[in-house]
Amino acid sequence: MLGPIGPAQSDELIHFTGKGGAFPASVPEEIRRLQPQERLDAILASAVLKGFPPFGATRACVCFSESPPEHLAYLITVCGFAPWGVVITRGQMLGAGGGAVAYVPTQVRQDFAQAGLGHWAVRTDTDSMWMHEREWRLPLRPGGEGAKLGGLAAILIGDAAWRPSLVGTGNWVNRSTGERCFGPDADPYCEEVEDLPELWQRSEIWVWDKASQTVVRHAPGTLC
């Protein structure tokens, strides 16, 4: 049991695929130049969340924000976060080995770093004011491909008409007859059946409504 969640807290943690400010130097250029919805599209297609060392850290992490509804609106409308991302629960985060970061003075942050725990702390100073992010981090294994997504609590999108790119399903059909086949090696007329990513089909979809500054929640499978 994780205990009760108070009104200033949220059981839902959001990994935004776009926000204001600079990228850490560890983020590759090919990811930096993508639009937030393009990064989300890549995440849904691969079912993998890639992570990189945050500012001041050496351990690669995937970063999330704890955002009750009113705070989510603040992050998007005031702080420049893009309304695109994936949502997991606290239980999923803690079960995967992640947790909330500590916001601490610079000297204490240095103590974390010296202990090899720099990725668990964010320094507080006049040039480091990030407490509004209410950040949680999921550290990644060195050399790993990222965090494999077995399931999501929700997917956040900023356009109700947006849909992710189709992906291969592993099933093949003869495009002339419609009959099932076993790939192009067996039949040159075979083509792979494509569909929306499984994560999209199985997750709740949150559509950001700019006018009301709230999300409209759609049950899994209703925006397929």
Rank of each mutant, 00 (worst) to 15 (best):
A57D: 02
D41C: 10
A42Q: 15
G56L: 09
R59N: 04
V48H: 06
L49S: 02
P69R: 00
F64G: 09
F52M: 00
P53C: 03
E66K: 04
F55R: 07
T58Y: 10
P36L: 09
I43P: 14
P68G: 07
C61D: 04
S46H: 13
A57N: 05
A47K: 11
E38D: 10
K50D: 09
F55T: 03
E66Q: 12
E38L: 09
I43L: 10
L34Q: 11
S46G: 03
P54D: 15
S46M: 06
A60L: 08
Q37R: 15
R59F: 02
D41A: 12
F52G: 01
V48M: 11
S46P: 02
R59V: 12
E70Y: 09
L49C: 07
P54T: 13
T58V: 13
S67I: 00
C61Q: 06
V62R: 02
A57F: 01
K50G: 13
V62F: 00
L49H: 03
G51K: 05
C61P: 03
Q35K: 14
Q35P: 01
P69D: 01
P54H: 15
I43C: 10
E70A: 15
A47R: 13
C61W: 02
G56N: 10
P54S: 14
C63H: 07
P54N: 13
A57M: 02
A47N: 11
Q37W: 15
P69L: 00
C61F: 02
R39N: 07
L49T: 04
L34H: 05
G51R: 04
K50M: 10
R39C: 06
T58N: 10
R39H: 08
E66I: 01
A47D: 08
R39L: 12
S65I: 07
C63Y: 06
I43G: 11
P53S: 05
V48K: 07
L40C: 12
L34W: 01
P69M: 00
S65E: 08
R59T: 14
S65T: 13
P53R: 05
F64V: 10
L44Y: 12
D41E: 14
P68F: 03
P54G: 15
P68C: 07
